[in-house]
Amino acid sequence: MRFRDYLSLFLVIILGFIIFQAFDGTIDNGLNIKQFGEVNLSERTSIHYINKDVNNESTQIIYNESKNPESGSANYVTSIIANYRALDTLGEITVLFIAAAGLAFVLGDHNKNNAFASDASFIVKIGVKILFPLLFLLGIYIIIHGHLTPGGGFQGGAVIATAILLKFLAYKDYKLNHTGLTILESFAGISFLIIGLIGLYTDGSFLTNFLANGTIGTLFSAGVIPIIYILIGIKVGAELSGIISNLINA
């Protein structure tokens, strides 16, 4: 440990003391941070999200019975990501795209030296041959059921990227078709924007839920939310696969 280390330790301890003061719920510090677990949900705006009705009075929702609430997905996290704050999600996948493009720009495009000297063993090859379609199917299942169960586009896209990572681990000459990846990404992004613009045209605000909502809790429900989540899944899967492919073949 040199002098710089002790100085950093001192600074970090001072900063930690200040942050702990800010989170102390017994002091009235004007930050409205309650004690752990004592949050009153009605003091936060998200109580409207819980009632799935921001514009009108709150209603009661019953699983498998209620028809046409404002955002018809049974998973509240999905209805926030893909409906109430879908503009944030659009910005987020833009950030993801910029990071992937920056990685490809920095690493360059010489697809010559592979990361691995030889193929994996026979057992791994056979295992990947069985596991790859199963993992791909699991990813698609997670994406499609994003509005009913935990999961959705981000998780399913990451599962699909993991399946492609397994292919890279098994075969040293495995290459992804980068043109196809680009087409998939562009298709997903443009369709997201077009769905938002259709909402702007029909109901007067960007990314409105303009399709019929259906009964809450069934597979064909929640209007545009499953479509948006499928597009997010395609985009996230393509971009994470592209990142992995660029890192391996750099």
Partner: peptide, 17 residues
């Protein structure tokens, strides 16, 4: 939801990258 994402991405993809 967050637990699934963290398990797939944090433990799987980040380590391999």
């Amino acid at each position: 939801d967050v637990a699934m994402t963290e398990a797939i991405i944090g433990a799987g993809l980040t380590t391999s990258i």
